[in-house]
Lab assay of single mutants.
Amino acid sequence: CHSECLGNCSQPDDPTKCVACRNFYLDGRCVETCPPPYYHFQDWRCVNFSFCQDLHHKCKNSRRQGCHQYVIHNNKCIPECPSGYTMNSSNLLCTPCLGPCPKVCHLLEGEKTIDSVTSAQELRGCTVINGSLIINIRGGNNLAAELEANLGLIEEISGYLKIRRSYALVSLSFFRKLRLIRGETLEIGNYSFYALDNQNLRQLWDWSKHNLTITQGKLFFHYNPKLCLSEIHKMEEVSGTKGRQERNDIALKTNGDQASCENELLKFSYIRTSFDKILLRWEPYWPPDFRDLLGFMLFYKEAPYQNVTEFDGQDACGSNSWTVVDIDPPLRSNDPKSQNHPGWLMRGLKPWTQYAIFVKTLVTFSDERRTYGAKSDIIYVQTDATNPSVPLDPISVSNSSSQIILKWKPPSDPNGNITHYLVFWERQAEDSELFELDYCLKGLKLPSRTWSPPFESEDSQKHNQSEYEDSAGECCSCPKTDSQILKELEESSFRKTFEDYLHNVVFVPRKT
């Protein structure tokens, strides 16, 4: 048989008469490798580009789960590009990614509803959504962080984005990388972005840091009482949809009607710091009717980097990364020049730590249904340095008659930039024990000054392991946590139920 035959053949030295091919099969003959313009397919066939392209389009058009959109890589027609490569849609070739590779997620039936953290986790790592997304989240724990972890990498949506009755959302900033909504599939009414009845939605994105392009379709905003109209108009300008909307697409009466839409800028007039305090004062603000001013709200939190936005980490279910302080308005003076500047002394802060701070007014709604208010920009203030805590785990070892090696770990709280350490030492008198000992005694162990690591005695271990207080009263049991108490109650309830079950099964009433 021919060298490319495997198993047997019907005619000697003829690659077209093989029972099976050793390498690849091409047009009725066995070959060692697939010549151009053919590609290896499933490690035994040679196919042309049209064959591989037909497989790709067949799966793409069917949208069946589990099928493969075949691509070409290293002269092979394979189910998908290997790690580190992405497909070129024009020629199906796998090309190296520039940075992290995109991950295209194809949605069944063309859309997916995100109504819980669990459903959001199914899209973790996706960068391109081939379909439409509907966000409908009523509640949950730590929602802002969970949504950002699972949806934060999405850069492109081919269909539309719909935010509907998501009472738990305060902001859409968890879509931190969303840059493009194509609108290839539109919501009824030709809408590519749809926001309806979101009672706590206050911000779409921080438009000073976020760009969003909507290729096709219109915007729809109705019944978002805490979303200011200025935020919607800003989205029109940034996304390129200005002029597409009709009169009733953006409701003037049901958007922002319960919001404090600040239209003035508060400026800080005085800032002073110490290692654990920050004193702030800002310019006074009074609405047209000074009785509408209820006070100020001061927001602050630790910020290692200057990239904080107002609604980071917030949701309507209680999660809030900001510390909020309510401040009463100052006494009002008739003389504008003698107006008191409101302020606040922030206490209990960490030394040498940068804080993000902003302040906003708290006002009631005027009778004319106009909203007044003022808010400052987010500023960054760093507390002063102070003395560091003591170095940890000092170790001293003498390696000769004239040297001592000293080692330690950095302090747990540096409280500033540590530039150097101060080492103090003092000579001590020799131990009298060394002169009084009889060095001729056998088995004498000389006193040693070398360091030995501390260890816990058996008594201390027994005390720590004991669940009861000892007789001397030195140790006591740790208080039980809520989960331990709940577990004990469940076990007790189970024992009672099981005992009742045994009584009912074992003891049967005697027939009379």
Rank of each mutant, 00 (worst) to 15 (best):
Lys103Gly: 15
Val104Thr: 09
Cys105Lys: 01
Leu108Phe: 11
Leu108Lys: 09
Thr113Tyr: 10
Asp115Tyr: 02
Asp115Thr: 09
Thr118Arg: 08
Ser119Trp: 02
Gln121Cys: 10
Gly125Met: 12
Ile129Met: 04
Leu143Ser: 15
Tyr160Ala: 15
Leu161Gln: 00
Lys162Trp: 12
Ser166Pro: 01
Ala168Met: 02
Ser173Trp: 07
Phe175Thr: 01
Glu187Gln: 07
Asn198Leu: 05
Gln199Met: 12
Trp207Ile: 05
Trp207Tyr: 04
Lys209Asp: 02
Asn211Cys: 10
Ile214Gly: 01
Gly217Phe: 01
Phe220Thr: 12
Phe220Asp: 04
Phe220Met: 15
Tyr223Gly: 09
Leu227Ala: 02
Ile232Ala: 10
Glu237Asp: 15
Glu237Gln: 12
Val238Asn: 13
Val238Phe: 09
Thr241Ile: 09
Leu252Met: 10
Lys253Ala: 07
Thr254His: 15
Gly256Gln: 04
Ala259Phe: 06
Cys261Ile: 04
Leu265Glu: 06
Leu266Phe: 07
Phe268Tyr: 05
Ser274Thr: 12
Ser274Asn: 08
Phe275Arg: 15
Leu279Asp: 02
Leu279Gln: 04
Glu283Trp: 03
Pro284Gln: 14
Pro284Ser: 03
Trp286Leu: 11
Trp286Met: 06
Pro287Asp: 05
Asp292Glu: 06
Gly295Pro: 10
Pro304Thr: 11
Gln306Pro: 15
Thr309Ser: 15
Asp312Lys: 14
Gly313Thr: 12
Gln314Val: 05
Asp315Tyr: 06
Gly318Ala: 03
Asn320Phe: 11
Ser321Lys: 15
Ile327Arg: 02
Pro329Leu: 05
Arg332Lys: 09
Pro336Ile: 03
Gly343His: 13
Met346Asn: 01
Arg347Asn: 08
Lys350Pro: 02
Pro351Arg: 05
Trp352Asn: 05
Thr353Gln: 07
Thr361Val: 04
Arg369Glu: 08
Thr371Glu: 09
Tyr372Val: 13
Ser376Gly: 01
Tyr380Ile: 02
Gln382Lys: 11
Ala385Pro: 13
Pro388Phe: 05
Pro391Ala: 07
Asp393His: 07
Ile395Lys: 11
Ser400Asn: 11
Ile404Val: 14
Ile404Gln: 02
Ile405Ser: 14
Lys409Ser: 12
